[in-house]
C-alpha cells in the first residue's frame, strides 16, 4: 500500500465515522476526532497528500486556461499587487480596488475578474457557487484555493487603511454582533468567548486576535466530513444556514465586510491554507 492509499483508507474511515446527522452524534465524535487527528499527523509527514492540494492544482490550471465568452485566461487579473501577480496576494486581501471602487475579498475579486476579463455573467458566477457534501469545490473555489496556497507561510498583512477599507471594517464589526432571525443569533452567539463548544465542536473566539490568528489562515480548508475544500465565503454561508438565515450571496457587501473584520482580527496570523478541518 502506498502512503497515498494508506491515507485514503484513513480518510474513508474518518468519513464513515462522521455521523451524517449532527443530532445523533455522541461518543462517535471522539473516535472521529481521533481518526482525523491521525489523518492530520499523516499529512504532516507527507504534506503533498492533502487532498485540498488537488483542488489547488486544478485552480492553477483554470487560472491559466482561456475561458468564458471572451476566451481569455485570468493571467491579467489584478489581485492587488499588479496584473497576474499571485504570490503573496492573498495575504494582503481584502483591499480596496479602484477599478471596482469597492473593497473585495479573494473570492469576490475573482468573480470581478471572471466577469470583466472573461465575460462570464455575474449572476451565473454567484448562483449555487458552493459544492454539496461529497462534491469537489467548484471552479471559483479551486482557483481561490490555489491563490491562497501561494501565500502559505506568509502572515496576514491587509493594510486596511484606506477610507473605504476602514468603513468596510466598521460595517463588518457591526454585522458580527447583529442579532436577527428566529433564533436571535449573531456571530457573537458562538464566537464571543473562549473555550465554548457546540456539542463537542470547539468554537473560536473570533473577536480575539489571539484566537483569530490561529484559525482564519486555515481557510480555504479541506473538510473531512464533507470531503471537499470549503472556502471562507462558503464557511460564512454555512454559518448563516445554521443561524436560520437565508442563503448568503457570495461576494455580497455583508460577506466582504465580515471577512474584512475577521482578517483584521487575524492580522499577523500565519496562512496555512488549505488546512484540514473536521
Amino acid at each position: 500500500m502506498t502512503p497515498r492509499e494508506g491515507l485514503l483508507v484513513v480518510l474513508c474511515a474518518a468519513v464513515v465515522a462522521v455521523p451524517l446527522l449532527a443530532p445523533i452524534a455522541s461518543a462517535d465524535d471522539a473516535d472521529t476526532e481521533k481518526a482525523i487527528e491521525k489523518y492530520r499527523q499523516m499529512l504532516k509527514e507527507d504534506p503533498w497528500s492533502n487532498p485540498g492540494l488537488l483542488d489547488a492544482d486544478r485552480g492553477e490550471a483554470l487560472w491559466a486556461t482561456p475561458r468564458g465568452p471572451k476566451n481569455v485566461s485570468l493571467e491579467q487579473c489584478d489581485l492587488g499587487k499588479g496584473p497576474g501577480v499571485v504570490d503573496g496576494a492573498f495575504a494582503e486581501l481584502p483591499r480596496y480596488f479602484a477599478d471596482a471602487d469597492k473593497v473585495l475579498d479573494l473570492e469576490s475579486r475573482l468573480v470581478w475578474c471572471m466577469e470583466k476579463l472573461q465575460g462570464f455573467e455575474h449572476a451565473a458566477l454567484v448562483n449555487k457557487p458552493h459544492p454539496a457534501a461529497g462534491q469537489p469545490v467548484k471552479e471559483l473555489g479551486a482557483i481561490a484555493t490555489w491563490i491562497a496556497t501561494k501565500s502559505s507561510g506568509l502572515k496576514f498583512a491587509a493594510k486596511l487603511d484606506q477610507p473605504k477599507e476602514k468603513e468596510t471594517l466598521a460595517l463588518g464589526a457591526a454585522l458580527f454582533v447583529r442579532r436577527s432571525g428566529p433564533f436571535d443569533f449573531a456571530c457573537t452567539t458562538c464566537h464571543a468567548d473562549s473555550g465554548r463548544r457546540i456539542r463537542l465542536q470547539g468554537l473560536p473566539f473570533l473577536s480575539s486576535p489571539e484566537e483569530a490568528r490561529k484559525v482564519i489562515g486555515e481557510w480555504p480548508a479541506y473538510r473531512v466530513s464533507t470531503t471537499h475544500v470549503m472556502t471562507m465565503q462558503h464557511r460564512l454561508y454555512d454559518c448563516y444556514w445554521q443561524m436560520r438565515m437565508p442563503e448568503l450571496e457570495l461576494g455580497s457587501d455583508a460577506s466582504i465586510a465580515l471577512i474584512t473584520y475577521l482578517v483584521k482580527n487575524a492580522d499577523g496570523g500565519e496562512i496555512s491554507a488549505p488546512a484540514i478541518k473536521r
Partner: peptide
Amino acid sequence: IDAMIKSAFPTA
C-alpha cells in the same frame, strides 16, 4: 446594516 443584510440574501 439592514440594507446590507437585505442585499446579502437576495433569494430570501
